[in-house]
């Protein structure tokens, strides 16, 4: 009885780990993962492939694609010189803007990048400095390792040359999801936060930066100041991977990108 049971178990394990030739592994940036999920669903409908998606951060995605653990790595930051190997294909599949959001009752609707620097580095702590009500500013920040936080802090220069963030010492509320940023900003009148353009909803108010409204046009025109590109990293000469990437860059794929609130590149 015991032997039969263990045989069955071994068989089960073996079948589940057997590599199907029609599988692709995609992993990386959590900012790209939601739209990638939609792209995969649409692609799987028309093609006989199974695509597995793991959201584990840009760095992990690039490493996985380089080492061949994943077929495609997603990255919401550009690759460093060390990461850029000869046998890698790097494609830009969309553009994201990081939008600064405040509470709906906040009268302020425009800030400059310098203002953001002063706010997040703790130099200015009250909304009245920016023409708003007399109320201290509550900083809402993402956690260490978040691609959105990296991109935002680099853009508003609250990171030293050594990559040390100046935000942590100013009593921010640190949360680890966009949903929690929305929640905090919607609840607290003095709060300020940031997120991907695609995640903004009507519970909060997206403000202008340097006088530019975050919109498709302003991002395409490169007027909106805080944007980042979404990259896919893959090994060269893999037909199935290339087919999937050309689907993403096709009209249909780019339409999905746009529906999720990102800016298309083609």
């Amino acid at each position: 009885m015991k032997k039969i049971l263990s045989l069955v178990l071994i068989l089960l394990v073996c079948t589940s780990c057997k590599e199907s030739s029609n599988q692709l592994e995609v992993s990386g940036s959590t900012s790209i993962a939601p739209v990638m999920e939609k792209l995969i669903a649409s692609y799987e409908k028309d093609n006989n492939v199974k695509i597995n998606l793991t959201a584990d951060g840009s760095s992990a995605g690039i490493t996985a694609a380089t080492d061949g653990v994943s077929d495609i790595g997603m990255s919401s930051r550009s690759l460093t010189k060390d990461e850029l190997k000869d046998d890698l294909n790097v494609n830009i599949i969309g553009i994201d803007a990081i939008v600064v959001v405040v509470n709906k009752n906040n009268g302020v609707d425009n800030l400059t990048i310098d203002d953001l620097h002063d706010i997040y580095s703790g130099k200015k702590t009250n909304w009245k400095d920016f023409g708003g009500i007399n109320r201290p500013i509550v900083l809402v920040s993402r956690e260490n390792g978040s691609g959105t936080r990296d991109a935002f802090e680099e853009n508003i220069k609250v990171k030293t040359d050594q990559g040390i963030s100046l935000v942590d010492s100013n009593n921010p509320v640190i949360v680890n999801s966009t949903g929690a940023v929305i929640e905090n900003v919607a609840q607290k009148e003095g709060a300020i936060g940031y997120m991907s353009l695609g995640s903004v909803d009507d519970e909060i108010k997206a403000i202008k930066l340097n006088g530019v409204e975050p919109s498709e046009q302003s991002i395409i025109d490169k007027k909106y100041p805080i944007t980042r590109d979404f990259y896919l990293v893959s090994k060269k000469d893999n037909k199935k991977v290339d087919e999937f990437i050309s689907f993403i860059l096709s009209k249909k794929g780019q339409q999905i990108m746009e529906n999720e609130g990102f800016i298309k590149v083609k």
């Binding site: 992990a60 490493t63 640190i174």
Partner: peptide, 22 residues
């Protein structure tokens, strides 16, 4: 009244994006 972070919430807050030595 100021915010703070405990050891457990440190792990839970940052685990999802952390890689390598982090």
């Amino acid at each position: 009244l100021e915010p703070t972070r405990t050891l457990t919430s440190n792990i839970a807050t940052e685990m999802s994006y952390a890689s390598g030595l982090h």
